[in-house]
Simulated scan of single mutants.
Amino acid sequence: MEHQGRRERKKAEVRARISDVATGLFLERGFDDVSVSEIAEAADVARPTVFAHFARKEDLLFDRYPEAEALVVAAINNRPEGTSAVAALSDLLIELSDQGHPLSTIRARFRRFWEVVAESRPLQARARELLQHLEDAIADAMAHTGVADPQLTAALTVAAVRTVHLEAIRRILATEDETVVAADYRARLITTLASIAQLHS
């Protein structure tokens, strides 16, 4: 068991190193102008090792998606008694935003990240795919909460969050004051998700 634990830690360290190196190169030069071979060389691993940890080049930048999905599912499954699934998601997203968490990205320091995404169609396409995966995971979790129509509720929730989040990102890219943007994001998210929770809980 201890050997297995060390092996898993080593795998996680290699994965993090590859992603960190790749992200640095992407932020410096743009996603489309960096090859997987360059990333492998810079991370001091073989090219197949990159794909052993990341199925697609795009996932090198979106490496925290598994963490995001795990947090969202846990928020629904472990919500306090009397709290709806949508309200639990709202609480999680507000907490991440208030912390300036990397999974929230509503801060000026993430501007370059979103510029890289905006410059690359493959990244935009992968972001849409991951959002669909997240919606499916939310629907599966909601199916065990008594929500009448978990697929519809999940779709409405994700669409609302996406709309509010993208508007905040546009404002960050336009170099608006991050404090104002974060406050508006917080208020819109609470109001919008509260409406969905009221209708679909």
Rank of each mutant, 00 (worst) to 15 (best):
A148D: 12
R64T: 11
T105N: 14
E95D: 13
V86E: 01
E2I: 14
A159F: 09
I106G: 01
A118M: 14
S195E: 13
A125G: 00
A143I: 03
R64P: 07
S201T: 09
T49D: 04
L92C: 03
V34Y: 05
K11L: 00
E95R: 12
R17P: 08
E8G: 09
H3D: 04
A16Y: 10
A154D: 12
N78G: 02
E95H: 11
V158W: 01
A160R: 02
N78W: 01
I76Q: 00
F110E: 14
M142P: 12
S97Q: 13
D32G: 04
V34E: 01
L199E: 13
A197E: 14
R15A: 11
A141K: 01
E28H: 05
W114N: 04
L193K: 05
D59E: 13
L123D: 03
N77Q: 15
S195T: 14
S97M: 09
Q124F: 00
V158F: 01
H144C: 05
Y65T: 01
A108T: 10
R7H: 07
W114C: 04
R109P: 03
N77R: 15
L103R: 00
A40Y: 04
A183K: 01
P66F: 04
D98H: 07
T175R: 15
N78Q: 09
Q124H: 08
M142Y: 09
D20A: 14
R162S: 14
F31I: 06
D91C: 04
E41H: 14
A108H: 02
V164G: 08
S19L: 10
F62A: 03
A174W: 01
V116L: 01
Q4C: 06
E69F: 08
R112G: 01
L131Q: 15
L60N: 13
V73C: 03
K10Y: 13
